[in-house]
């Protein structure tokens, strides 16, 4: 019972801040709502007994990536928007189609998914290590090694791309 109350409270905050992120006019305020959103997601991880993931969430997302967002937002002058972005309804039709598609997808998952898919219970499988941090490390380097390597390749490519774009002559 208590767990359910905590979960729905956190979920309500997460969704509420997510809505505020996209509806707030001031870009800096919007980025700060994103920080709050990430902090509440970290609280969700704490609730799931994953303190390591919670700390990493705060460290990487709330403390690292969003600071870079803030950096960009502050350096770029957003007071005077370009002409093309003045009309808020410019992508109204595409937005409507996309949101209906996502809604249908979620509804399909909710309707068809229950019962037909075995619940993922990787944590329950016997791991040779105990402790949240050790388990995350173990899973990352055994079951999820290929996704992990692909993600790191992707980041490497992005980094090289950024360097090539920034440096005219190498």
């Amino acid at each position: 019972m208590g767990e359910a109350i905590a979960f729905y409270t956190l979920a309500a905050f997460i969704l509420g801040f997510a809505v505020l992120v996209i509806t707030t006019k001031d870009t800096v305020h919007s980025v700060l709502f994103l920080v709050l959103d990430f902090l509440f997601v970290a609280a969700l991880y704490v609730m799931l007994n994953a303190p390591f993931l919670a700390a990493i969430q705060v460290l990487v997302y709330a403390g690292g990536i969003v600071v870079l967002y803030l950096f960009v937002v502050m350096l770029v002058n957003l007071k005077r928007l370009p002409e093309a972005f003045q009309d808020p309804n410019r992508h109204g039709r595409i937005g409507l189609i996309l949101s209906v598609a996502v809604l249908l997808e979620l509804a399909a998952i909710a309707a068809l998914g229950v019962g037909s898919v075995a619940p993922v219970r990787t944590a329950a499988r016997a791991l040779p290590v105990t402790g949240n941090t050790e388990q995350v490390g173990w899973m990352l380097y055994t079951s999820y090694l290929i996704p992990f390597e692909i993600a790191s390749m992707l980041l490497l490519v992005a980094m090289i791309g950024a360097i090539v774009l920034a440096k005219r002559e190498l």
Partner: peptide, 9 residues
């Protein structure tokens, strides 16, 4: 480490 990264804000 996480808290010190938040103090940048």
């Amino acid at each position: 480490f996480a808290i010190s990264s938040m103090s940048v804000y």
